[in-house]
């Protein structure tokens, strides 16, 4: 097709990025804000002695599963954390944890309201669905470029890229959870004269909670999958170790760090699932 001129998609996007970059003040503000959250988490993790951190994780797991007593999981956590410490990855692990927690937190704070809005408005849902598909299917690498342009190098652009990539499940599952609330419960709430807010907080959100939390769990796992990619733009942590190992063709070192990521993933996954477990007895 020699006659049809190529659409200048890339130059449009470049122009858009340039234009956005002119809001320097705004992006600096965002950078500082996210940087603050990151520093806060990191400060706490640096302050915690390793033994106390382990006690908190194991104790927390025990308490969350106090009915079922997952001894296997607790043993796994102890061995896994000892392994990370033994390999000298402790600080890298806490950095990765910081990245994951920060992105999940932001994904939660932005994603849940968007999900609620989608759950309540057919129009917004129709508009947003393709956007979410786009966010999730666009190769995650691509987000790195504008992230660097707006937020520089380091943890903050890593968090931003993770949030964009990892937020869709939170939004989708919140939307789904809200829509799944049975129609007669909505009618009941309405018939007793609930305002929209009362209905949201007393009926819809509590009933959407477990679906919503499944979304948060997925977001967390997705942001963990971003840590290696994020390390390419200077995010510190286990991802960085893997990334360097790739560069040096160091299979052993890469695997050792990769294993630490897997351990962290499993612990995070099980803990969030346990938080989510319903307290209401099944019939």
């Amino acid at each position: 097709m020699p006659n049809i001129p190529q659409l200048p998609v890339s130059s449009w996007i470049d122009k858009l990025v340039d234009w956005l970059a002119s809001f320097e003040g705004f992006f600096n503000g965002v950078t500082n804000f996210i940087g603050g959250i990151i520093n806060g988490f990191q400060w706490v993790f640096d302050l915690l002695p390793i033994w106390l951190f382990m006690i908190l994780v194991v104790g927390g797991t025990y308490w969350l599963n106090r009915k079922t007593k997952h001894w296997g999981l607790i043993a796994f956590e102890i061995v896994g954390l000892l392994y990370i410490w033994n390999q000298g990855f402790w600080r890298d692990m806490t950095q990765t944890l910081t990245l994951v927690l920060t992105s999940s937190l932001i994904a939660l704070v932005i994603g849940v309201p968007l999900g609620i809005w989608m759950g309540k408005s057919k129009v917004f849902e129709t508009i947003n669905k393709p956007v979410l598909d786009f966010m999730q299917t666009m190769p995650a690498f691509v987000y790195l470029i504008p992230a660097v342009a707006f937020f520089g190098i380091g943890m903050v652009p890593g968090v931003i890229a993770s949030v964009i990539f990892a937020m869709p499940p939170t939004i989708r599952m919140t939307d789904l959870g809200i829509r799944q609330v049975p129609a007669d419960l909505i009618e009941a709430a309405d018939s007793y004269g609930s305002t929209s807010w009362q209905k949201l907080f007393k009926v819809q959100l509590p009933l959407a909670k477990s679906t919503l939390m499944a979304g948060v769990n997925q977001s967390m796992m997705l942001s963990l999958s971003m840590v290696v990619i994020a390390s390419m733009i200077g995010a510190m942590g286990l991802g960085n170790k893997v990334y360097f190992a790739v560069g040096r063709n160091d299979a052993g070192g890469g695997f050792a760090a990769g294993l630490a990521i897997v351990i962290l993933a499993i612990i995070l996954d099980r803990i969030t699932q346990a938080i989510n477990r319903s307290k209401i007895p099944k019939s």
Binding site: P182, D184, L185, E187, A188, D190, S191, Y192, G193, T195, K202, V203, P206, L207, K209, I280
Partner: peptide, 21 residues
């Protein structure tokens, strides 16, 4: 309307419509 629903009438549903949580 909210006031009327709150004070004047209450509804009972076929499938109970109790809040499970």
């Amino acid at each position: 309307l909210l006031n009327v629903r709150r004070n004047k009438m209450s509804m009972v549903f076929q499938n109970f419509a109790l809040f499970p949580n």
